[in-house]
Design a binder for these strands. Structure first.
Lengths: 341, 341
DNA sequence: GCGAAAAGTGCAAACGATTGCTCAGACGGT
DNA sequence: ACCGTCTGAGCAATCGTTTGCACTTTTCGC
């Protein structure tokens, strides 16, 4: 008649007629071999009968491992992140880990606070999506003794495991596509400074152009990876160099869509007047008007690899250093040969 | 020279020259009044000096409150969820809670497993986005004694707090818009059965039409809220009733985009031949071709309200029951007057 | 069969907080 | 002056596990 609360390990022990420590071992796959088969089975049966679920809190307190990993993203509404986060969560869940999610809003103070809070919650490690230079994460994580894995963006200088795309080579694909279409005067709509992907992609654009003896006719860096910032930077590009380029290589899809907005404002047609390419191949990139020619990155694979890298670290293995996943060109309709004349 | 590990409450106590229990009280705003001002300040200083961060694990173990809330979504890559999740996380974070995220993949077994796992982690409550009939969540949560709050979809029958949109009234806006444009033969591309929003929106379509003495000329329900399922259901609609309708009211944006795909396959132009409306006003809905006329719901407000409802419950307050947030029509270009003749 | 090694369990001390009790002293009313 | 109340702080138990150590039994080599 009494409300028993959740059964504890002692309840199981009592029912199985053994000591709690024996139950603990019998239920731990890595210690089960120290227990006789008969007892292990009796314990399993008792646990099953009681519907016993060990308290991860108590286990974490004692063992120091909470089976919890924190994931930090700057902005979940940026379509790049959901697939990555989802893949991370799935991979962690498969390994029995639960995912703590928080959004930093690209604010360094918030990032530091969230890491501390996750550490207080006993997180075993932190996966940081989109680190920016000056990010307090490496310092904070190191101070707290937490393994840190970067995903989507690396952090040059810091020796941290990271899973990223082949940014330079990937955007080179887009540039070469434009060159093949006959473009010679190409502008780059770059990502914010302090972000590794932005620098890498700018480098990639320069390299691909240089291979043909060319250089970008203009480079304008957006203040953030958002549609609004992309539109603004494109307006700047038009102010400075209107008519001076026939194509814009954007550092990501959101920026490219911002370019769509800005080009439309001044009556320029895509791709008839100006070609535009993006980067990321985010969901819906095929549905915009015109469908965006872009570079596909492996969102899911990236998330999964990041989770695997974290799990390897948590197992005490060295794990991979920086992993670079290849990107592929996706040709749609936003890039076409330049207008004759 | 020794590696001190993280400072514990006893370290702070020692430094402040008081007992650990006094530190605990001095640091707890709701118990601070039992401590003299002088001691409280000494403790605060000591904690500050040591960089003390209480272990949420230990606190949770003893107090039964882990300051952790689990959030379950069926699929994070559905653009409806990120803004909701982000708002939930932000509101919870403001209250000092951390968010556990997991994706159920619309799988009941997985949903049950994840709830158990979150309970084992000591989660204080569960917020479930998009419950479907037959969801094991209410039962599981009740068994575990966890408060459950629904967001985006309610669960008819279960007496659970839920924060949803005014689905019926909202989609009525779209229908009335179509009627005002002159459409009379309207088909409904419905959501999956077993999902409350789908039923509510279907009801809303019927009600709005009935007010004019009309009824939907066809109703086809998609197997899931995805672009693919939307395309398939639209193909079915065309098979059955091609030419029999001049507009499609879709139960959500993803379905509407699927309709775009299917209509294009057979050479039908939007909106010249067929008008299409969506629901949700997801990000990018304005960028597709043609820009989607849809119904805007308050993603962020919904997430925030759900988090607030959960926090109220955790404070022991009754909190609101079902909250319905109004929706608004967003007119873009996918709906136009029907072709003459 | 003997002793040593191995196997299988139990014991009890952590882990780091929270909280019901106890207790000493200050205070105030009569 | 005395007694009761209140305040502020300490004591110690407790939350539910894990794990180093000690203690029996087997097991096995010789």
């Amino acid at each position: 008649m009494e409300r028993p609360g959740r059964p504890t390990i002692s309840d199981v022990a009592r029912l199985a007629g053994v000591h709690a420590s024996t139950v603990s071992r019998a239920l731990d796959p890595s210690a089960r071999h120290r227990i006789s088969r008969a007892v292990a089975e009796r314990v399993a049966a008792a646990a099953e009968q009681l519907g016993y679920r060990p308290s991860a809190l108590a286990a974490g307190l004692r063992s120091g491992r909470s089976h919890t990993v924190g994931v930090l993203v700057p902005d979940l509404t940026n379509p790049v992140f959901p697939p990555i986060v989802q893949a991370i969560e799935a991979a962690l869940a498969r390994a029995g880990y639960v995912t703590l999610l928080a959004s930093t809003e690209a604010d360094a103070a918030k990032e530091a606070l969230l890491i501390r809070r996750m550490a207080a919650q006993g997180a075993d490690g932190i996966i940081l999506a989109s680190a920016a230079t000056g990010s307090p994460a490496p310092g904070a994580a190191a101070r707290l003794g937490l393994p840190l894995v970067l995903v989507n963006r690396r952090l040059p200088g810091a020796e941290l495991p990271a899973v990223v795309s082949e940014d330079a080579a990937g955007i080179g694909l887009a540039v070469r596509h434009l060159l093949a279409l006959g473009h010679r005067r190409i502008a780059h709509l770059g990502g914010p400074s302090g972000v590794a992907t932005a620098a890498d992609r700018l480098r990639g654009v320069r390299a691909a152009l240089r291979a043909e003896g060319l250089a970008p006719v203009a480079v304008e860096r957006a203040a953030a990876y958002t549609r609004q910032a992309g539109a603004e930077a494109t307006r700047a590009l038009l102010r400075v160099r209107r008519g001076g380029f026939t194509a814009i290589v954007a550092a990501n899809d959101l920026l490219a869509l911002g370019a769509y907005d800005a080009l439309r404002e001044v009556g320029l047609r895509i791709p008839a007047d100006i070609s535009v390419t993006g980067f990321n191949d985010m969901p819906m990139a095929d549905l915009v008007d015109p469908p965006l020619t872009t570079v596909r990155i492996q969102h899911a694979a990236m998330g999964e690899a990041a989770a695997e890298a974290m799990l390897a670290r948590l197992r005490g293995e060295a794990g991979p250093g920086t992993v670079r996943l290849p990107a592929a060109l996706v040709v749609r309709a936003s890039a076409a040969p330049p207008q004759a004349g």
